[in-house]
C-alpha cells in the first residue's frame, strides 16, 4: 500500500496479543522466592514496563490486562508455572494488579515525550515500577493488617527492582532505535 500505514485495529490487536504472549514467555525464566512475603523475584515484571514503553499506554495496558486475564482463567503463565485465581487473591496479588497501572503510567510518559530517548524511557520505567508499588504495597498491607510492615517487607525487592528498571530502560531504548517508526509513540497517545 502506498498510503502511509495507519494504525489498523487488526495491527493493534496483533500487538496486544503478541505482547501478552511475550510477557508469558518471560515467565519461563525461573522465579526466586526471596524475603518474607512469599513474593517471588522474577524478570517477568519487566514485561508490563516494556509493554507500556514499546506499545504505548493504550495497547500496552491492554496487553497486560489480556495476559492477567489468561492467567486468571487457569493458564500457568506466571513465572514458576503458577496461574489460576490463587496468585491474585494471595498477598502479592496487588503487585499483579499493579502491572496494569505500570504499563499505563510508563506508556503515558513515553508517548507524552517528544522523543523516546534513554532518560525519558528511564523515567517511564521508574514511574511504572512506583505505580506497581502503589497498588501492591497497600494490598499486602490490607492482608497483614499493617501498611508500615507491608512497606518494610517490600523493601527487600527495591534493589532488584531498580536493577530490572535500569536494564529494561536500556533494552527499550535499543529496541526503539532498532525499529524506529514501527513503535509509534504518536499513535499510542490515541
Amino acid at each position: 500500500m502506498p498510503a502511509p500505514r495507519v494504525s489498523l485495529p487488526a495491527a493493534d490487536l496483533a500487538r496486544i496479543v503478541v505482547f501478552a504472549a511475550f510477557i508469558a514467555v518471560l515467565g519461563i525464566f525461573p522465579g526466586i522466592y526471596f524475603g518474607a512475603s512469599g513474593v517471588p523475584v522474577v524478570i517477568q515484571n519487566a514485561g508490563p514496563l516494556l509493554a507500556g514503553v514499546l506499545l504505548g499506554a493504550r495497547r500496552g495496558t491492554a496487553a497486560v490486562v489480556l495476559f492477567l486475564a489468561l492467567t486468571a482463567i487457569g493458564l500457568p503463565l506466571l513465572s514458576g508455572g503458577r496461574g489460576g485465581l490463587a496468585p491474585f487473591v494471595g498477598p502479592s496479588g496487588g503487585f499483579l494488579f499493579g502491572w496494569i497501572l505500570s504499563a499505563l503510567v510508563a506508556g503515558l510518559i513515553v508517548s507524552r515525550a517528544a522523543k523516546p530517548n534513554l532518560p525519558v524511557i528511564g523515567l517511564a520505567t521508574l514511574a511504572g515500577l512506583l505505580a506497581d508499588y502503589l497498588i501492591g504495597i497497600p494490598f499486602l498491607g490490607a492482608y497483614i493488617g499493617d501498611l508500615g510492615a507491608a512497606a518494610v517487607q517490600s523493601l527487600v525487592f527495591v534493589p532488584g527492582d531498580l536493577g530490572k528498571v535500569a536494564a529494561t530502560a536500556l533494552i527499550a531504548a535499543v529496541v526503539h532505535r532498532a525499529l524506529p517508526g514501527t513503535l509509534p509513540r504518536t499513535a499510542s497517545s490515541r
Binding site: 489498523l8 487488526a10 495491527a11 493493534d12 490487536l13 496483533a14 500487538r15 496479543v17 503478541v18 505482547f19 511475550f22 516494556l50 514499546l54 533494552i171 529496541v175 532498532a178 525499529l179 514501527t182 513503535l183
Partner: peptide, 16 residues
C-alpha cells in the same frame, strides 16, 4: 523483542 514485534506485524497483516 525485535523479532516479537515483527511477528506482531505479520500477525496484524494476517488478521487484516
Amino acid at each position: 523483542l525485535v523479532r516479537t514485534l515483527r511477528h506482531a506485524d505479520q500477525l496484524g497483516e494476517a488478521l487484516a
